[in-house]
Write a protein that binds this DNA or RNA. Structure first.
Lengths: 230, 230
DNA sequence: GAGTGGTCTAGACCACTCA
DNA sequence: GAGTGGTCTAGACCACTCC
């Protein structure tokens, strides 16, 4: 017979909570008691409980003990995808096409998002990512050349700006926005959609030490679903 | 002098990776070696490395060892909001309205998502959340009555199923999906939109100990943007 | 077969927090 | 002060994976 694993213990505690043997707000037995009950070391019980606490199912406090969470504050983690990796991970062939690349002053609206002065040196790149030959994402990006001057030397005709930035301009902060929108005429054409189609739009601004790096708008056909687990 | 903590070890390894002393793709020393270097037990080094692996900074494989991740998988965390809290946090008035509530067998498509047999006992609830009198979210939900029988006794006419479930049926796992879609006629009417409007759809399935709890489809008008920071 | 990470134990001491 | 969780150690065996 196998020794009791922390996973077994975690599962059993989950079960008791789900069966309401232990109700929200209620204190559950201490680590010592559980260890005795399960015939395991306290460290093993501790690991199970720590994972449940991280998941938000229980709340732990020294001296008070462990209680079933009343209002589980849940956090989900989601991985920031690299388009190419995302496509290849699902077994499809990735293709990249540069649509346009132009160095020009940053327009007002973009400057505001980047927190810089309108007219600052910017690089605008538009490109298309395809999966198995079908348009997957249309990318419209502004890069702040004051922060990332090296980008000015890149043509982005073979490698997309996303991949280049990942390798060359680490960021410390990011803000994402997700929304639904009606495709603009350009977006509809690029993605091969009817005019007026609904598209999934993800926007992201990234910074390094308070200086903005890039603003990107990623547009997906309506068939696209962004999935995250927790 | 304090003993070496797993946090110290984690921080030092992070430093070496960010300073590029250990480069992406490179194998780093094994747990045994690091334990010797830091003067700690192997279990302590193990915990530090496990956390770094969870954060996506390193990849671990038995026999092969631990290597610095090639494409550091960045993770964002976002808090799963309670609609009411989300609306009230932005200073608007929250209103809830129950649209329909019916106990009936779970249809095929929903059963598949919930991992149960079609025809199992289910509770279907539709409701509308408004902010300052304007439709904010239309919620269409199925609850698995085999897992949460107590929900059968709730009318959901004053408190929404979301809030009720949070307090009465904790979950351990969830899967989210976000997408853009064209509003169905019902959704358009409920949200006060023109037919054919683009809507932002969030879906969520939750489980506790492998048993599904609920499947919910949350539909927002196109003005809605979901924001997250990291 | 052998090397590396994964997990468990038994015991110990620490740190936080409540009373 | 005392109770409970947080962490560390030293040693052991297991499990996966590469050779």
């Amino acid at each position: 017979m196998r020794r009791t694993s922390f996973k077994d213990i975690r599962a059993e505690i989950e079960r008791r909570i789900s069966m309401r043997l232990w109700r929200p707000g209620e204190i559950i037995p201490g680590e010592e008691a559980l260890a005795a009950e399960f015939g395991a070391a306290r460290a093993t019980v501790n690991r199970a409980l720590q994972e449940l606490a991280r998941a938000g199912l229980v709340e732990r406090k020294r001296k008070s003990g462990t209680r079933v969470a009343l209002h589980p504050v849940r956090e989900a983690r989601f991985v920031i995808p690299l388009v190419r990796a995302e496509i290849e991970a699902s077994g499809m062939a990735y293709a990249y096409r540069l649509i346009s690349r132009e160095e020009r002053p940053v327009p007002e609206a973009v400057a505001a998002r980047l927190g810089i002065a309108a007219g600052a040196a910017g690089l605008h790149v538009a490109c298309l990512h395809a999966a198995d030959g079908r348009p997957y994402q249309y990318e419209d990006r502004w890069i702040n050349l004051d922060t990332v001057p090296a980008a000015g030397g890149e043509r982005f005709d073979a490698v997309g700006p996303n991949e280049w930035l990942v390798a060359n301009a680490p960021f410390s902060q990011a803000r994402f926005g997700f929304a639904a929108a009606i495709a603009t005429p350009v977006e509809a054409r690029m993605l091969g959609l009817e005019p007026g189609a609904a598209v999934f739009v993800a926007e992201r601004v990234t910074w390094l030490s308070g200086r903005s790096i890039t603003l990107v708008r990623m547009v997906h056909p309506p068939s696209h679903t962004m999935v995250m687990d927790m």
